[in-house]
Amino acid sequence: MRKTYGDVVAVDRLDLEVGAGEFFTLLGPSGSGKTTTLRLIAGFELPTAGSVLLDGADVSRLPPYGRDVNTVFQDYALFPHMSVGDNVGYGLMVRRVPKKERAARVSEALEMVRLPGYEKRRPGQLSGGQRQRIALARALVNRPRVLLLDEPLGALDLKLREQMQIELKGIQKDVGITFLFVTHDQDEALTMSDRMAVFNDGRIEQAGTPAEVYESPATAFVAGFVGTSNLITGEVARAITGADGTFTVRPEKIHLAEPGDEPDPDRYSAEGIVSEVVYLGVNTRYIVQLAAGGELVVVQQNQATSSMQALAARGRQVRLVWDRHHNRPVGGADRKNEVKEIPA
């Protein structure tokens, strides 16, 4: 699929298949095309090229109301002039579901989002978290084939967001509806998804399970965007591995050791000086200037280390060691130059 606005390419060469009942996340920075993708599926935008198939049927040219898909909007978009009950029952009302059945399904949906008996309230009287749940109930009450969620947790504070992540995942398991979830928060994506796709510049860089994406990032962008990662290129890569290429290694996979250790053949090692120590409570982050050039970030759990011990490491000569299989080759460090299109 492809979508352009004038000269701007919003989504390009998008090819994505989502399985029924999956919790699928579209992860990417803002402007990477993930929301446009969602709007193309919902029917608010028409693709410039390509098509949207729902259960094998082409729905690309159908209006939003002709698609068995519902959306939870980023700003919730609750109707301010209607009660919560009328909001949730709106989809049923316009589809002429009889009043009695409507009331039953609305109350059932409100129970599912743990706001039973809220029918009479007005959206203006609800907190952000409650509005979010109502928006979810309003979409789910229609029992769509696919539920699209556009950064639904973005406006909530951290504690509430973490709670809603678990709850949302639970609801998805219960109803068995396919969830297509847009977020720029990598933790959210890793926590909730069955599978995920990482977007950058209107394209998918990698799609896979959270573990696959995290453990074996396909590109330098994915390695940097999903979690933090060390990128080892050029001279430094050759000095450490003896081979050409670009590699990533996660900070938590690297261990600090005394200099002069006998290197294990299954491990890479590099010597350097600790230039910065950031104590984070559970972890400590060390920034190490390598003798071969460049720097690596190392994260160590503070299992037996006190903050004093951790901070004392600054300026110390250390040897970094990590298992060879944690050193991941990535393709296309210069991929951007290769595919950059100059729009006509």
Binding site: A42, G43, F44, P63, P64, Y65, V69, N70, T71, F73, A77, F79, Y90, G91, V94, R95, R138, A139, N142
Partner: peptide
């Protein structure tokens, strides 16, 4: 308006 269309209203 988008939400309304999305929920099935023409």
């Amino acid at each position: 308006e988008e939400a309304s269309m999305d929920l099935g209203a023409d």
